[in-house]
Amino acid sequence: MTRARTLFIWAAAVALNGCGGHQQSALDSVGPQAGKIESLWWFFLWLLTAIFLIVIFATLWALTRRHRGIEQEPLERIHLPSGETEHRLTRVVAGASILTVIILFALLIASVTTGKALSELGPKKQGITVEVTGNQWWWYVRYLNGDASRIVVTANEMHIPVGRPVMLRLNSNDVIHSFWTPNLHGKRDLIPGRVNTEWIEADHPGRWRGQCAEFCGMQHAHMAMWVIAEPEDQFERWMEAQRAPSKQPSSASELRGRDVFLNNACVFCHHIAGTPAAGQVAPDLTHVGSRLTLAAGTLPNTKGNLGGWIADPQNVKPGNHMAQIDLPPGDLEPLLDYLESLK
């Protein structure tokens, strides 16, 4: 008995773990879109749970009740139910069928209404547009702006203003990915050669984790992204900081680090605004020091993790496309100093 109770408590604890205020949960919606999806989810859950229970109890009741309507007769080759039984069966089956059709229609209407409501957020309010492009295995994020000099590019992290709708233009450079930040919205595929759109909005400040939800190769599991909602003024400050070119090296070590960066394979793939590094196929590093994570949400952004990532990327994410370079012993430390200084 005690053991059963302990087991039950553990099971309940594990199950409830998914429900609290969490950074990656569709049941903790923080915006109108996810809110609608969550309501739909609970509506389905309760209705279908009720139906499930009714069906199970009806089955148990039918199994255990005494046989009525048919008197116990000597066994015959064929058994014909009485006219009255036949009539009652017809009524019950017809009634259940009609009820089923009505319920299915109710679910269909609820689902279509939600889908329609999800697409109506944007046009009502002034919003911003962000381009998210999937790559194996990281996210390219670009804040569009009519003035080309005010476009902001970052990676694996998206800051959004609280209470303003954000239109995402989703595209992919290689294979099909899917953008999924359950606290904000459902999944939407990123398809090469096609732009998919969706609106998201956050009700209050916070950080939520998103991840790729369409199998995209070896490191699909390590393709995560953080969405950070901030109050308007804080968001604008962040945008201004991101627009600035990279910080100039301020110490001998950082200066040496920049030379290391510019004289190795780094420069072919990565971009650092204000230096000759202009690669476009890997995450923009202009403000890499200001980000939360490295390698698309795989590691917290610390100097040690960055060192491990540069020294042996295949250890952290086997199969990823970062070039392996053998830096001479004295070069890694300055390189880390320089990259971490790029706030």
Binding site: N263, N264, A265, F268, Q324, I325, D326
Partner: peptide, 8 residues
């Protein structure tokens, strides 16, 4: 040379 690793 000097930038692209040999394996690449």
């Amino acid at each position: 040379g000097g930038r692209i690793p040999e394996y690449q």
